[in-house]
């Protein structure tokens, strides 16, 4: 077993355990903290897959901004495990069974698919900021501008919703 596979297995175990922690833990603060660890492991996956720029963006935007926003809202609303609304037990089992069934079906479909294998020993500069910037501002400049309008409307929407009326 090569070094890459060992690192992959460790990171995957961390990812799946923390993902289960997100949906199982009673206290919402613990859920957010497990989600942060999950995003960190996904960042490590990005580094392994030669996506350096995305790794940094994931680190800063997801772990730094979005999760802090979640944590901030949870602490602002003062949520804890006593106030946590619980579903009825049979609904929980039904949800878990349907999720597991989805997992089984997609795994069963893709198990026999033949795909190329990844060459982890060669490094490419495809994920560097220079390369991505070239593609972004040459090929994808219209979606880029549209996403700025999306941000503007999201900002206005958040302010309008959050305003006390």
């Amino acid at each position: 077993m090569s070094l890459h596979e060992i690192i992959f297995i460790i990171l995957s175990v961390v990812s799946i355990v923390t993902a289960l922690g997100v949906i199982i833990s009673k206290n919402p603060v613990n859920s957010v903290l497990s989600l942060i660890v999950l995003f960190f492991s996904i960042t490590c996956h990005y580094v392994m897959l030669n996506a350096q720029f995305l790794a940094i963006v994931n680190f800063i935007v997801y772990m730094g901004a979005i999760m802090v926003l979640f944590l901030f809202v949870i602490m602002l609303l003062n949520l804890n495990s006593e106030l946590e609304p619980q579903k009825r037990n049979w609904l929980k089992y039904a949800g878990a069974v349907s999720g597991g069934a989805l997992l089984l079906v997609i795994t069963g479909i893709l198990r026999s698919a033949s795909m190329a294998s990844l060459d982890m020993n060669t490094a490419s500069d495809i994920g560097l900021i220079k390369n991505l910037g070239n593609v972004l501002f040459k090929q994808y400049v219209v979606p880029f501008e549209i996403s700025s309008i999306l941000f503007l409307s999201a900002m206005i929407g958040a302010v309008v919703l959050g305003k006390k009326d």
Binding site: I23, I74, P85, G95, A96, S98, G99
Partner: peptide, 17 residues
């Protein structure tokens, strides 16, 4: 990971989770 996310949407009632 995707299916764990689907499961979480189905079994939790807290909107933030």
């Amino acid at each position: 990971l995707f299916c764990i996310g689907v499961m979480g949407v189905l079994i939790r009632r807290n909107a933030i989770i």
